[in-house]
Computed example of a mutant assay.
Amino acid sequence: MKKFKWLVAGTALTVVLAACGGEDTDTAGDSNGDENEGNGETIEWSLGHLAAEDHIWHETSEKFAELVNEKTDGQIEISIYPNNQLGGETDTLNSIQAGNVDMVITGETMQNWAPKSALLAAPFAFRDSEHMINVVEGEIGKEIEDEIYEEVGVTPLFYMERAPRNLTSNDPVSSPEDLDGLRIRVPNVPLFMDAWESAGANPQVMDFDEVFTGLQQGVIGGQENPVDLIHSGALYEVQDYVNMTEHVYSWIYVVVGNDQFESLSEELQEAVWEASEEAKAYGDELFVEEIENYHNVLEDEGMTFNDNVDQDAFREAMEPAIEESLTEEQFELYQRILDVE
């Protein structure tokens, strides 16, 4: 990830330590970044995410924390909290803004503050992985990151590619006609709600940590996620089919609060950026190795991959809702994404 040109080293603010597990927040005291480096004072950050401990996000986060600790000579320690231990993405972002948490892995949920973030996971915006990478690492990706910094109050340190989102169900779904009002879980993303409703489903907003129980109890009959999260959430125990809709290619960011990051000295900021670059490379390798493995594991657990999906039919069914749901600015960005080679 390229450094944000607008990030500058300055006089350090009070370093906010994480309030984890409901404990009161402690502070590191008032001192500037150079003094922090000189007196060896430890800066503690908390990083939350929704996946399980065997997920590539968690493994990459652990590598990132290790690299940060190493490159800052132990001055920055990052504690990682998987399985939404710090709350869902929205709650954790609110906690970062309040100074009670420091970092989170997040994506399109940030559109609640930064509208362009909706394009991180817009249905059928990206043709394939290569197209998506060209967008995120190009001018459009920079625009989205700038808005995240300004409106969400967090700094994207690096991104991780996600496997395509696919619909899971207990009966095969090959076309929109097969949905027939199927209650499916979607994240708290209005665009997802509108797109799936347009395709004929009955979408329900639900936190990821509630999906397994929702499926088990019949509150919902399906959900849509990449294969890694299908595995991480043990959804193979309550779902029979992975329908290869591949309706969303997307990415997700590891972000830190602006105040927390900008309270660091220039040297510590540089160390965090270096760790971010190396952690991204590590995560990229994991992604390539493990996504195919997840496919095989889900089959071993009894899930059937339905390759007989009419993706064009789903695209056509969702397109009117996508255009209607996006603002004029968002839809213009959507069109620009489609034009990227």
Score class of each variant (00 low, 15 high):
5 K>A: 01
8 V>S: 11
11 T>R: 12
12 A>E: 12
18 A>I: 00
18 A>W: 01
19 A>S: 14
35 E>W: 04
39 N>L: 02
45 W>K: 11
48 G>M: 02
60 T>I: 01
61 S>I: 00
68 V>I: 12
77 E>R: 15
78 I>N: 06
79 S>E: 13
79 S>H: 12
80 I>L: 02
82 P>E: 00
86 L>T: 00
90 T>I: 12
91 D>G: 13
98 A>G: 05
107 G>M: 04
120 L>P: 05
120 L>M: 15
122 A>R: 02
134 N>S: 15
139 E>R: 08
151 E>V: 00
152 V>L: 12
154 V>P: 03
163 A>V: 01
166 N>S: 15
171 D>Q: 13
174 S>R: 10
176 P>R: 00
180 D>L: 04
180 D>F: 06
182 L>H: 03
189 V>W: 10
195 A>V: 10
196 W>L: 07
203 P>K: 03
204 Q>Y: 08
209 D>L: 09
209 D>V: 04
211 V>T: 14
211 V>S: 02
227 V>I: 14
248 V>Y: 08
252 I>L: 11
255 V>N: 09
257 G>K: 06
259 D>L: 08
265 S>D: 06
266 E>F: 11
283 G>T: 10
287 F>G: 05
291 I>F: 00
295 H>F: 07
306 N>T: 04
317 A>Y: 05
321 A>K: 08
324 E>T: 04
332 E>S: 13
